Computed example of a mutant assay.
Amino acid sequence: MRTHHRMIALAVTGVVALGLTACAGGEADAGDDNVSITLVQGTTALPFAQTTAAGAKAAIAEVGGVHLEVAGPANIDPATEVKIFQQVVSTRPDGILLQELPPDLFTRPVQDAEDAGITVLPYTIAPASDSSSTIFVGDNGFDIGRMGADAVADALIAQHGSEDITGKIPTGICVPGLSVLTSRIDGFRERMAERLPGVEVLEPFDSKSDPAQNFTVWQQAVSANADAVAMMTPCEADVQNLIKIKQDSDATWQLAGFDINDISLQGLRDGVIVGLFPQSSYLHGYVSARLLAESLKNGTDLPKGWVAIEVIPVTAENVEEIAERESSPEAQAAYWKPYIDEIFAADTVATRPLADANK
């Protein structure tokens, strides 16, 4: 395995792009680890990213003999993430766990990394169709969107006492064109058309990734659509802002969320939102890190295809259980252990066709 350095300084055109954190596997000191892996995230600041990193660190500690670095821009910034990835490649780790935000920007950089002998494993966001990647660990955003639509449709039917509902659903997207977000919108729109054909899911507008701008944009959208029956967004900050807007205005439109955080959990407790349909971020980090670490350490091939990770809906019935799960890395590890045991029960992890992850 390649020799790696414990401290790596990465900067991007005068901007400090990341702070690298290190995690040595097992009891060994980082200098004794035989395998080096870097987790490159699309954002390091949001709760889901921190949960993903916690899962990856847990897997690395279990495998042992592996040194893990965590890198990425604090906030979503695709161009900066690409530069960070390329600089990580220049340090020559044995493997990289990569959240491609967005996938089309990483096709060439990933190929360059693999040509340099570095194993790249995409997680959370499925690679582009022209990518050289042959494995993906994550879920299907389209299916997540359909789950959100079912929850909103059920709430609307209960609210109006009928399936004969007409109206519109304004839709915002914080990073236009990002596949992990657009797939949720597409799934939501398709399922809503099946459940409530009289309800129109409007084309998404740019809700802005900056939280302050995002709040203003949504205030304007809500004001301009006073007759809306629901609001739709696949973005974490958007849902947080919409919870506040709905509470402050006593609005009656429906809303589902797709990420777990304290604000959204409280919004679910208070009945402001109808449910959360989050990615299982801890599993994304754990499963991808364990697969890559064991492959590199044992000299075995990674499985080919999509390692599908289950999505656990959060409802009024299980919100306290999920809140307890989210309270610490130890609670996460305990909650997810049965799922992890099932995934790794066989000699080879089960996969589905890679193309199915984008359907």
Rank of each mutant, 00 (worst) to 15 (best):
Asn298Lys: 14
Asn298Cys: 11
Asn298Leu: 13
Asn298Ala: 14
Thr300Tyr: 11
Thr300Arg: 13
Asp301Glu: 15
Asp301Cys: 11
Asp301Ile: 12
Asp301Trp: 07
Leu302Arg: 14
Leu302Phe: 13
Leu302Met: 14
Leu302Ile: 15
Pro303Asp: 13
Pro303Glu: 12
Lys304Arg: 15
Lys304Ser: 15
Gly305Asp: 14
Gly305His: 15
Trp306Pro: 08
Trp306Asp: 13
Trp306Ile: 08
Val307Trp: 14
Val307Lys: 15
Ala308Phe: 13
Ile309Gly: 13
Ile309Phe: 12
Glu310Pro: 10
Glu310Val: 08
Glu310Thr: 09
Glu310Leu: 10
Glu310Met: 13
Val311Arg: 00
Val311Gln: 00
Ile312Phe: 05
Ile312Cys: 07
Ile312Thr: 11
Ile312Asp: 10
Ile312Glu: 10
Pro313Thr: 00
Pro313Cys: 03
Val314His: 02
Thr315Cys: 08
Ala316Thr: 00
Ala316Gly: 09
Ala316Pro: 02
Ala316Ile: 00
Ala316Phe: 01
Glu317Met: 01
Glu317Leu: 00
Glu317Asn: 00
Glu317Lys: 02
Glu317Phe: 05
Asn318His: 08
Asn318Leu: 06
Asn318Val: 08
Asn318Cys: 03
Asn318Arg: 08
Asn318Asp: 06
Val319Ala: 15
Glu320Gln: 08
Glu320Val: 00
Glu320Tyr: 00
Glu320Ala: 07
Glu320Lys: 04
Glu321Ser: 02
Glu321Asn: 01
Glu321Gly: 01
Ile322Phe: 00
Ile322Asn: 09
Ile322Met: 11
Ile322Leu: 07
Ile322Asp: 08
Ala323Met: 03
Ala323Asn: 02
Ala323Gln: 02
Glu324Ile: 01
Glu324Arg: 01
Glu324Phe: 04
Glu324Val: 01
Glu324Cys: 02
Arg325Gly: 05
Arg325Lys: 10
Arg325Ala: 08
Arg325Leu: 12
Arg325Gln: 12
Arg325Ser: 08
Glu326Arg: 11
Ser327Phe: 03
Ser327Arg: 07
Ser327Tyr: 04
Ser328Ile: 15
Ser328Asp: 06
Pro329Tyr: 05
Pro329Trp: 06
Glu330Leu: 00
Glu330Asp: 02
Ala331Lys: 08
Ala331Tyr: 02
Ala331Gln: 10
Ala331Glu: 09
Gln332Cys: 03
Gln332Tyr: 02
Gln332Met: 06
Ala333Lys: 13
Ala333Leu: 10
Ala333Glu: 14
Ala333Pro: 11
Ala334Gln: 11
Ala334Asp: 07
Ala334Glu: 06
Ala334Met: 08
Ala334Ile: 04
Tyr335Leu: 02
Tyr335Thr: 01
Tyr335His: 08
Tyr335Arg: 02
Trp336Met: 13
Trp336Arg: 12
Lys337Thr: 11
Lys337Asn: 09
Lys337Phe: 10
Lys337Ile: 07
Lys337Asp: 12
Lys337Leu: 12
Lys337Pro: 07
Lys337Trp: 10
Pro338Gly: 05
Tyr339Val: 03
Tyr339Ala: 05
